[in-house]
């Protein structure tokens, strides 16, 4: 028991600092991905509910691809694909050099693609929960289409979409563990290194699982708080 505590302590003897740093990287990757995933997901949902068939089809192809590919494969496609594209582009203009894509950025791009495809579904089903009368009301008040969307629909949409978006956030948080495979020093990688060096794999991977659990718990608390906040107008009715 004491031995385990020494291994997990901060400072020269333990791996505490490495694991803490890894946790920070994991959380910041998820947080950095979130706004992109939300914005792309919202736009894709808008396209999916539009009356224009071509736009709808284009958006559906997007979600079919990124919900059908394994997250790990998307990650490799982005990581190696972008690298090869940049190298070929440089070779075209006559520069022969080696470029390595930053794994944080590659992870961010891949996770945004995957997560936005899921979030677009969340937004889409929330759109279905908003009655047509809300659009008509906005129109009757003389608001332009964009204004109706932003001032009338969006605030209600967020409230309806929050539970599903929260779920997507939890999935996103877990999926960031995959980015360790392309060399990002996140929680999974740091604990992996510690496990290999100390030969205490069960201890360190167990700690990694526990930290992911704690992150999920913190997220759930935050999410339920946000949900309550978003519904604060409901009680008055």
């Amino acid at each position: 028991m004491n031995e385990a505590l020494t291994l997990l302590s901060f400072g020269d003897l333990g791996w505490g600092d490495a694991i803490a740093l890894g946790t920070v990287v994991t959380v910041s990757l998820a947080l950095a991905t979130l706004p992109f995933a939300l914005i792309i997901g919202f736009l894709v949902a808008l396209a999916k509910k539009s009356n224009e068939p071509s736009l709808k089809l284009a958006a559906n192809i997007y979600t079919t691809i990124f919900r059908g590919l394994p997250e790990l494969l998307t990650l490799f496609l982005v990581y190696f694909g972008v690298q090869i594209a940049i190298l070929n582009g440089l070779r075209l203009i006559g520069v022969d050099t080696y470029v390595e894509v930053n794994s944080f950025v590659a992870g961010m791009v891949a996770m945004s693609l995957v997560s936005s495809a899921y979030m677009s579904e969340a937004f889409l089903s929330a759109f279905r929960g908003i009655p047509q009368g809300q659009y008509e009301g906005g129109h009757a008040l003389g608001l332009r289409h964009g204004q109706t969307l932003m001032l009338v629909i969006f605030p209600q949409l967020i409230r309806l979409a929050l539970p599903a978006l929260g779920n997507s956030w939890l999935i996103l948080l877990k999926d960031t563990a995959l980015v360790s495979v392309i060399g990002l020093s996140d929680l999974m990688r740091e604990t992996g290194i510690a496990a290999r060096v100390t030969k205490e794999a069960f201890l360190f991977f167990g700690i990694a699982c526990l930290i992911y659990l704690v992150l999920a718990m913190i997220s759930s608390v935050g999410l339920s708080w946000t949900e309550r906040w978003s519904k604060r107008g409901d009680t008055a009715r």
Binding site: K174, S180, A195
Partner: peptide, 20 residues
Amino acid sequence: FFRGTPLIAQTFLLYYGAGS
């Protein structure tokens, strides 16, 4: 536990952790 942690972490825990 199984829904709150990444599948990759669970796999590592079982595969590498079993050695302990």
